[in-house]
Design a protein around this nucleic acid. Structure first.
Lengths: 341, 341
DNA sequence: ACCTTCCACTCAAACGATTGACTGTTCCTA
DNA sequence: TAGGAACAGTCAATCGTTTGAGTGGAAGGT
């Protein structure tokens, strides 16, 4: 068996196609781009199409990009691929990009090398950047904005970024807490996200507001935690369980933290939901497979990814936007919440 | 507050830098690329560097790419971002790419549009492609190979792809089954992956071989399942639990399936590990947070991603490779395995 | 018979960086 | 003191597409 030696038979170019079709390269270019103003005989067009097919011609992306100053690629920065909520954001963004014939280059914002992403923008490799990570140093943010290209943050506010796609975090918390109050809980704790996180703050606000709306007095002692990781969630749960008067229910600000919290509760022999109800923000497929299956508030993650790409495509880079995606925020009741004993 | 209007002050080019430094563009180019053969006064070099800094010059990626015929970007195709094992592969690949100043464009192989990825290769947008998905139609594979660019499969064999990075799937199964046998199990089942999957087949082989090595006779009735999803795992577990004479232990071919299997067992009221030991292939952070914490065999996922990128960087596209990454394959015992009652 | 319009194309200048081949000084050596 | 090396750069072609501006002939109107 011989390996077909496609040893780069000198790349096929527009000129090759044009020569084969006995026509000027510019016509081939216009045929490919579907130029409306092109007037051409059907027969000639057919010759061009046939030549493209025969030579398996594919336009060179770099040349096109150089000429048009567009790369057809957008960037998306996330903190960690292993966190399933970003998988949802990526899916939404990828699909939206795909629908607009663009590519999506997703990367983790390696804290030590933020200038990589500034370069991506400044060099024109990507036309715009979606920021879904809160770990980008302020000076890198500033440098990104300074490139004059589209930069949009999703799922968070970032100082200096005037265009953002947000979910209604407050409302998500309120929905969750209302559920717990309706079940009869009075002593409701909150495992919150990172202190410096914008979403964590908004979820905390929603938690407080919902308590008051339900006629309960927020108790600062019942707010613990400082992180969106399962380790942070486990740590916070241990803190709650060590309290002299334990809460009967807890809202966890993020599903990753909730996974750790459930594990910590299990280790401590606490029965869920009998002794403690748990509800978390973010619904992912995994939630149904936890023990017990986790009650969650679904957040429009994929929708935010999609909206982010649409915002990048919107050519008006100057205009500020603050779009809140909310339509699919809803409570999904599973087995981790029940009335208090 | 006025928004700084970086309304594209007509892009900064090499010529601008050269003009500011009173030198020829070619010198600037050579300074930037670190050309060894360039002879230049220290003072001149300093002027160039200062001009670059002052203008915030960043070389245009498209122009460079057009001239050098290199894009500095590699592609990685996965079936699904939500599957945590791919997060590991991505991490390894991204880091390796980063170390070589390359970018990684990760995408899901949307079954309906495989030609997108052929185009990515053929248009020169990516220099090489890593295939970690088994859902790519054969004709798309063929078209990719036909571009003459580097294509390497990771974690699987793909017909037509002569370069691959594999893990030792057989060995992973053997390690897992040996563990079960050492615990005293005699009736050991296997929840296998997709029938057409290469890795699933190799894991099945390892399972059979380990049974024989342990003096046990493989029983075809104890091999169930056909998928790497949690749904498939749950379904397979139900099948096992419905058997008149239940197994006392099961090897699940993949951690996603294991998650579903655990859920199904829990729903059926089966105590793990008391009534049934479960061990799965692939170790991910989540495994420690399942109920019970899952015993796994760690596979070198990140290492495969890394090795894949290195293979793409290896310019010799013609040479076949079959590299097995194995160094980190090891058993991680948690709470889901115990001696049979 | 002359002018205009339409048709079906062709021409050539960009886009911005890279790179092999030169050029014009000094300085040294034989 | 002629010849060559070392120095410090300059020149210009090239990568492959896109796109505004042109061109020559046929058809149509007056």
């Amino acid at each position: 068996m011989t390996v077909p030696r496609n040893q780069r038979p000198t790349r096929v170019t527009l000129a090759d196609v044009a020569a084969l079709a006995h026509i000027d390269p510019s016509v081939v270019s216009r045929v490919i781009s579907g130029d409306e103003r092109l007037v051409i005989k059907d027969e000639t067009r057919a010759r061009v199409v046939a030549a493209i097919k025969e030579l398996r011609y594919h336009p060179n992306a770099a040349a096109r990009s150089l000429r048009t100053a567009q790369s057809g690629t957008f960037g998306l920065l996330i903190p960690d691929f292993a966190n399933p909520i970003y998988a949802e954001i990526i899916k939404g963004a990828e699909q939206a990009a795909d629908e607009h014939d663009a590519l999506l280059l997703t990367g983790t914002a390696l804290e030590d090398r933020p200038e990589r992403y500034v370069r991506m923008l400044a060099s024109g490799r990507v036309e715009g950047l979606l920021l879904a990570s809160d770990r980008i140093p302020p000076d890198a943010i500033e440098a990104m904005i300074a490139t004059g290209r589209a930069v949009v943050s999703v799922n968070q506010r970032i100082p200096g970024v005037q265009r953002m796609i947000l979910a209604d975090d407050e409302r998500a918390s309120r929905i969750a807490v209302r559920h717990l109050i309706e079940l009869g809980h009075r002593r409701i704790a909150h495992i919150r996200g990172p202190v410096k996180s914008d979403t964590a703050r908004r979820r905390l606000n929603g938690y407080r507001r919902a308590l008051r709306t339900g006629g309960l007095q927020p108790d600062a002692a019942l707010v613990v935690g400082n992180g969106y990781t399962s380790e942070a969630g486990a740590e916070a749960m241990r803190e709650l369980l060590a309290m002299p008067e334990r809460p009967t229910a807890v809202l966890v600000a993020n599903v990753a933290a909730a996974i750790g919290a459930l594990t910590a509760a299990r280790s401590a022999g606490v029965k869920i939901p009998d002794e403690l109800s748990v509800v978390a923000i973010h619904d992912i497929a995994l939630a149904a497979n936890l023990a017990p299956a986790l009650t969650t508030v679904r957040m429009p993650l994929a929708e935010m990814g999609r909206a982010g790409i649409l915002a990048l495509l919107d050519e008006d880079v100057g205009a500020d936007i603050k779009k809140v995606v909310r339509d699919t925020t809803e409570l999904i009741v599973r087995d981790s919440t029940a009335p208090p004993r």
